[in-house]
Write a protein that binds this DNA or RNA. Structure first.
Lengths: 273, 273
DNA sequence: AGTCAGGTTTCGTTATGCGGAACTTTTCGT
DNA sequence: ACGAAAAGTTCCGCATAACGAAACCTGACT
């Protein structure tokens, strides 16, 4: 079926609130005033539904109507919200800075990862300036069993935890090097635990070598965030990767320090003595 | 007043969606990770309710949980939303007019900036008509420690926040004038805080002098909008820049006025017949 | 003074939000 | 190592808000 409509963006979400946030994203992209009708055409949503959403946003000061009462613009409260979001996001800022510094140092793309559910989530990433590079987005996800950070996360778990997590997802083969046998994987994980670092040697993408360590803060429990260097094997061999380990570990320590710092500050609202 | 409770913020709103946005505002103010429990204490809302809200925000990528699954932080989607909101702001038009007026007045390129992560983001820029000019794009980013606006943003932060942003990363030198020593920088920031304006004296690009002030919002609180004049040192010395200060401050006030102006218009929803 | 293109209201239906209570997991003190 | 306290999570009956087709306004242009 070939649609003859010109919808550019679709409002999606499982709940009304999520749909409203999606609408905000559509609005955020606009550099001009917009009308109800323009949103109807752009998103394909029913008019009364959008009307109600805009009413809510206007009622709470997030949007503001022009004098003609048909053109909407961003309200001061929304602006303030956006400003505060960026202004106070110092944790991300600091992490990103560390990451950038590491990329400068080793000359290859690096990223910060976390375990999210049964997958590894790319929290942030800084690309190398080299022309040849793997382009991967922050926010994307990768299976645990074929990523360097994933193996580190697994290595930290109790056998029971690990088995439960791996039981959910079959060990899918992505390349010839992917470890698909549970015993092999357990053995690799043992090694990883002893070494304190992990490789991903073309186990997820052919031609991509990756080395990772954890940003573990010792006293604050197990805030396990991973940090990794990724590069084409043409530029990064295992040996070369090992040479980068000290720099990588230094970055990991820096990130651990940021995180434990940010975790402690929770009582600024507490009453005066 | 002797309140025995420690609630700082109330989540209010007639509809669930509005309450969710109010929650986002609470979250936007946080410069550290937070937990479900901390929000319960801060807002006084029932735990399951907040839990459900956080679930929705996490599910749509607006928030991200740390690996320990109890600390929440801002997600990449939320950051992107905030950046787009500021970049494409409809008062962009009004601000742009102020900027243009300022450029007319002082005869040099000017720009409006905001802090985003650990960098200064150019929201808007108007070029001088002079032939010799530095060409910089709106949307581009510059390190905080070597930009005039950046120093102003740093000057209004708490020491802890500032340390988080700067402490972990060596201050990269871009020119001979770049402040790469932390003590020097702290001293400079002290000065900036007292003066209310900041210079960038060839600290980022050789030959470029820059003077900036903040567009303070009247009802107090921190500001995330800066405005600056940039010119080649051949045309703009520190002395000449100081002569432009009144005009710059006037422009900053005008921009602050635009923001708070919109704030008054919030009650024409219930006036039907 | 009619037509038309937006914007707004209505209303029965359905989905979502709500939050006390119970349950599970983690953390902490001994 | 163990049990208690605290934090996180799930349950579920009730209440409320969202939904969107259709009908209804309202101004603008002819």
């Amino acid at each position: 079926m070939t649609s003859h409509k010109t919808e550019t963006t679709r409002i999606e979400g499982d709940t009304p609130a999520q749909r409203l946030l999606a609408l905000l994203e559509v609005i955020a992209d606009k550099d001009h005033f917009f009308t109800l009708q323009s949103l109807v055409e752009e998103t394909g949503m029913p008019k009364p539904t959008l009307h109600r959403m805009l009413q809510q946003l206007e009622g709470s000061g997030m949007l503001q109507r022009e004098a003609d009462s048909r053109h909407y613009g961003k309200g001061s409260r929304l602006r303030r919200l956006a400003e505060n979001l960026l202004l106070n996001d110092t944790v991300h800022g600091a992490r990103h800075a560390v990451l950038r510094q590491l990329v400068d140092e080793v000359g290859e793309s690096c990223n910060i990862t976390a375990l999210s559910g049964s997958e590894v989530l790319y929290l942030d990433r800084v690309e190398t300036s080299e022309a040849l590079r793997f382009y991967l987005h922050p926010g994307s996800r990768v299976p645990v069993h074929c990523s360097a950070s994933g193996k580190l996360f697994l290595a930290q778990m109790s056998p029971a935890q690990r088995r439960r997590l791996l039981g959910e997802v079959p060990l899918k083969a992505f390349t010839k090097n992917t470890l698909t046998d549970m015993d092999q994987l357990e053995q690799e994980i043992d090694e990883v635990r002893q070494q304190g670092y992990a490789f991903d040697d073309e186990e997820f993408l052919s031609g991509l070598l990756c080395i990772a360590v954890l940003a573990n803060n010792p006293q604050g429990g197990k805030s396990n965030i991973g940090i990794a260097i990724q590069a084409p094997i043409m530029r990064l061999t295992r040996d070369k990767a090992l040479e980068c380990l000290p720099a990588l570990q230094r970055a990991a320590d820096a990130i651990a320090a940021i995180d434990s710092d940010a975790m402690l500050t929770q009582h600024h609202t507490a009453s005066s003595v």
